[in-house]
């Protein structure tokens, strides 16, 4: 899984994809996840980081991330291999 490196993300949670011309808004956690992806972190690492910082069970994050990645993929913000 690889995030589209060109996308610009601002502090307000505004995301712009210059390749497609689409723009999006995301929340605080969404921004964190995208930053992790840009750094090339694995989903497992992201889950660990989030559970360390936030009051949440790993299993909840796992389910939410699955949905979030699906949305990122639908919006053509990540390219998943295989």
């Amino acid at each position: 899984m690889e995030i589209n490196k060109n996308i610009a993300i601002s502090d307000s949670g505004f995301i712009f994809n210059p390749t497609s011309g689409d723009s999006f808004s995301t929340n605080h956690i969404g921004m964190k996840v995208i930053h992790f992806l840009k750094e090339g972190q694995t989903p497992d690492h992201i889950i660990t980081s989030i559970t360390e910082e936030f009051d949440v069970e790993a299993q909840v994050v796992e389910k939410d991330l699955q949905d979030f990645f699906q949305m990122l993929e639908n919006y053509q913000l990540i390219i998943s291999h295989g």
Binding site: F16, S23, S25
Partner: peptide, 11 residues
């Protein structure tokens, strides 16, 4: 500029 669109969209 897209910054303007960002401002009205997010704020």
């Amino acid at each position: 500029d897209i910054e303007e669109f960002e401002k009205i969209s997010t704020q």
